[in-house]
C-alpha cells in the first residue's frame, strides 16, 4: 500500500565503470502524489532526463528503488515492467510525440489497443481523453494538420488515456512560443488537478512554476526544493 503515484528512494545512476564512470544521478529521492505536479529544474547535464527515464522504467538505477503506484520496478519481470510502463505511465516529450499517419483520435487510442482493449472502447476512451484536454474537435485531424500546441495537447491526452495516471513530461513546451507553451502547461496543470500525477522536467523557471513543488537538480544531486505550495486559500488570504 502506498499513497504515492511515483516514488524514487535514494536513486543513483552511474554510467560506465572504473576510471570513466560518470555519476549521472546521486542519491535522489522524490515523491509524486496523485493530484500533484512536481517539477525538476536543472541545466542540461544536471541529470534531469536520466531521472525521468528511471521514473518511467526506461532505464535502471545502479542503486536505489523506483516505485510506480507501489510497484517496485526492480521486482518486475520483463513482461510485468512492460505492462506497467504501458498501462501506468504516459510520456510527453519535446516533440515527435505523434504518429504522422494516424489521426489524433487514432494516436490517442493506440496505446489502449496495444493494451488489448477493443477498438470501439479504445476509441471512446480516446475521445474522452481528447475532451479532457480541450481538443475533441481535432479528433479526425492528422498531426501535420495541427499546430505544435495542439499536437502537444493530443500527446497529453494519449499519455493519460484509459487508466493511466502518471504523466512524465520532458520539456513538453519545446520550441513552442510562450503563449502556446503556457496553454500546454495549463493543460498539464488541469489534468493533475483532476487527479493525475505529473513529473515535469524543464530548465525554464516560468514553466516549472506551474508545479506544486519544484526540486533543483545540479550535477545529479538535488540541491534545493521549494517544498509544497501553501493551500490556495491561504495565498488569497495574504493578498
Amino acid at each position: 500500500m502506498t499513497e504515492y503515484a511515483l516514488e524514487l528512494r535514494d536513486v543513483t545512476r552511474v554510467h560506465g565503470s572504473g576510471e570513466t564512470a560518470v555519476n549521472a544521478l546521486h542519491g535522489v529521492s522524490l515523491r509524486v502524489r496523485a493530484g500533484q505536479l512536481v517539477a525538476v529544474m536543472g541545466p542540461s547535464g544536471s541529470g534531469k532526463s536520466t531521472l525521468l527515464h528511471l521514473a518511467g522504467g526506461l532505464d535502471t538505477p545502479t542503486e536505489g528503488v523506483v516505485e510506480v503506484e507501489g510497484n517496485r520496478l526492480d521486482e518486475q519481470n520483463r513482461a510485468g515492467l512492460a505492462a506497467l510502463r504501458r498501462r501506468g505511465i504516459g510520456y510527453v516529450f519535446q516533440d515527435l510525440n505523434l504518429i504522422p499517419a494516424l489521426t489524433a483520435v487514432e494516436n490517442v487510442a493506440l496505446p489502449r489497443e496495444l493494451d488489448g482493449v477493443r477498438v470501439r472502447v479504445a476509441r471512446a476512451e480516446a475521445m474522452t481523453a481528447l475532451e479532457d484536454v480541450g481538443v475533441a474537435n481535432l479528433a479526425e485531424r492528422f498531426p501535420d494538420e495541427m499546430s505544435g500546441g495542439q499536437q502537444q495537447r493530443v500527446a497529453i491526452a494519449r499519455a493519460l488515456v484509459g487508466p493511466r495516471r502518471l504523466l512524465l513530461a520532458d520539456e513538453p513546451t519545446g520550441a513552442l512560443d510562450s503563449h502556446t507553451g503556457e496553454a500546454v502547461l495549463r493543460t498539464i496543470r488541469a489534468r493533475c488537478d483532476a487527479g493525475a500525477a505529473g513529473l515535469l522536467v524543464t530548465h525554464e523557471a516560468r514553466h516549472a512554476a506551474w508545479a506544486d513543488e519544484i526540486v533543483f537538480l545540479r550535477d545529479g544531486r538535488i540541491v534545493d526544493e521549494t517544498g509544497a505550495m501553501p493551500a490556495a486559500d491561504s495565498l488569497l488570504g495574504a493578498q
Binding site: 529544474m41 495549463r186 496543470r189 523557471a205 516560468r206 516549472a208 512554476a209 506551474w210 508545479a211 519544484i214 533543483f216 540541491v223 534545493d224 526544493e225 521549494t226 505550495m229 490556495a232 495565498l235
Partner: peptide, 21 residues
C-alpha cells in the same frame, strides 16, 4: 545565489497560481 533562486521560484509559483485564477 541558491537561496535567492529558491525564493524567486517560489514567488513565481505564487504569481502563476494567481494567473490560473
Amino acid at each position: 545565489v541558491q537561496a535567492q533562486r529558491t525564493a524567486t521560484v517560489r514567488h513565481l509559483q505564487e504569481l502563476t497560481r494567481l494567473k490560473t485564477r
